[in-house]
Amino acid sequence: MVQEFFFWVLAVTSVMAALGVVGVQDIFRAALLLVLAFLSVAGLFILLNAEFLAVVQVLIYVGAISVLIIFAVLLTRDVEQGNPSNRLRLPAFVGAGLLFLMLTSAIVRTSWPEIPSESLARAEEVFATTPQWLAGLLLREWALPFEAASVLLLAAVLGAVVLIRERQP
């Protein structure tokens, strides 16, 4: 019952904040609403027994990515021009709406294989202690993608530095 209540609160908050990101005229406010959307998604992760991911979400999205975006908003002077749309407004709305209808009908029609009742107790046990299982998974089964992700981040940081650096005359 409590979970039900929090789900609806978080769902409405995240959808409203996402609509604000797309619709608000002031880009700086849009960036702040994006922070709100990230926070409510972190709450949804907690509802889904993914506490570690919720903390990662707060640290990386709320802490790092939004600060980066706000810095970019402040560094560019286009803020005064507001948040204009291009001429594709109607086709984009129809396209996004159609995609949403397709996804929803697929979600509703599929019969999802739920966790069998014999192993439900074990599954609950796993979901109560996700961080240690995730550590095992990341450093054993997914060790290679894990290292690839670290190389990717290093390359991205180097690329960003090279792109932003002042050109020598």
Binding site: V22, D78, A92
Partner: peptide, 12 residues
């Protein structure tokens, strides 16, 4: 869908 709409329509 909201994010897709934003990506397709925004100019900034």
């Amino acid at each position: 869908a909201i994010g897709l709409y934003g990506v397709l329509t925004k100019r900034n």
